[in-house]
Design a protein around this nucleic acid. Structure first.
Lengths: 218, 218
DNA sequence: ACCAATTTTTAGATTTGTCTAAAATTAATT
DNA sequence: AATTAATTTTAGACAAATCTAAAAATTGGT
């Protein structure tokens, strides 16, 4: 597995989801900031290796081995992110780039030891689940803050947008994973929300609410 | 800097030393297990980038910038080795391969934080000095065990051969860096040594003694 | 100083991953 | 259903890093 192959597999997984729905050449190209013709070439190559199903003009889907490979890379990416935040005091908006490099390091022992050092974390700094060594992968029961009814209470468990600008905005407003949230009121006009977060009242736009994941209290 | 360029620079440094003596194309090729013609190509490329001095048929030497680059890669390599041993319980014969990969990760913040996490170590697990952030690099005052006079006392501070077989041999015989050493007797016939190491007496061959570095007591 | 052996370079080919521009296919619209 | 629009593939080219085989330069020995 070359670095490039791993990146394609990862992208196909992110676009096609766990069930490995067929993904369009163009979509892959756009996501990876490359050209559709390059994607076609790689699709052929990965198909020959048995990592994807590829039929001309009908997009690409991951095989079982492809999914396994994707999960292994994603596991590494997310574990490194946790490492950077927990052990080296990186902030959550700085980890992505570096993890993009570290995820390609080839050593099973290394990543297992990192996992152990971190005490087997279940989620990365953005709230995304970390696949286990054997590729199990528990998507948390969560909803967008913008989708939950008024008066409901929950805990902030993830972000949808992981861009540095958004994450820094959250930091500035002391919105962090683990914070409790109650929706007090919803403005009909612009869908903005009045919420209570860890005690203090806050007014947030729909834009923000639709990029924050909440786990409702049971 | 591509990974390949960094590996060439590192090899030229190791062969040419700090003072950047001119290194033969063939020597580089042999060390890197590649072909001389490939080295020639890379020599041109690195010369154009200002990292080496290269004159046809007269070998390659590092420029100041080349030395700086080499030290930066070596610093990363050795810090990662310390990390693997101290934080992840790798043994000293397992670290090289993985460090070969990790040394190419591009993030100044990452390596500085690793340095800090390890409390700014001065030496790697094999006793080799770790260059500082600004490229300072203190070679320890040390001698081969095979070269020091009878009755002299010192501390084991490094290994010359870092092969897995040698390191495992040392482990098996409980020879470790930091152990005290006194040379009791030298066998004229085969240059083998009777030594005292951390209290117990040991008989070691010339082969072994000529791959162990000792710092004499003052 | 010459010849032979060694080292180094050149020339041309290969692989991987990428690109552009043109052709082929599929999808959408009237 | 025919034509236009969008997507996807093909064909051919390129850069990086490597290789082989042949040519050129250097070195060593006498």
């Amino acid at each position: 597995m070359t670095r490039s192959e791993e990146n394609y597999i990862k992208t196909i997984f992110h676009l096609g989801g766990n069930d490995s729905i067929s993904v369009a050449t163009n979509a892959i190209a756009e996501q990876m900031e490359t050209k559709p013709s390059s994607v076609t070439d790689m699709a052929r190559k990965l198909a020959k290796k048995g990592l994807v199903n590829y039929v001309k003009y009908q997009g690409v889907s991951l095989t079982d081995i492809g999914v396994e490979t994707a999960l292994s890379v994603i596991r590494k990416h997310r574990l490194w992110e946790v490492f950077l935040v927990k052990k080296l005091d990186f902030s959550w908006d700085e980890v992505h780039e570096v993890a993009e490099q570290l995820e390609h390091i080839k050593s099973e022992k290394l990543i297992d030891k990192i996992d152990e050092l971190l005490d087997f974390p279940k989620y990365d700094p953005h709230g995304d689940p970390i696949p286990s060594k054997d590729g199990k992968f528990m998507e948390r029961d969560k909803q967008l803050l913008s989708d939950i009814p008024i008066k409901s209470k929950g805990v902030c468990v993830g972000v949808k947008d992981t861009s540095s600008t958004f994450l820094k905005f959250l930091d500035k407003n002391k919105i962090a994973l683990g914070n409790t949230i109650e929706v007090l009121e919803k403005e009909e006009f612009d869908q903005s929300l009045h919420i209570q977060m860890d005690g203090r009242e806050l007014h947030i736009s729909h834009q923000i609410a639709s990029n924050l994941y909440v786990k409702l209290n049971d």
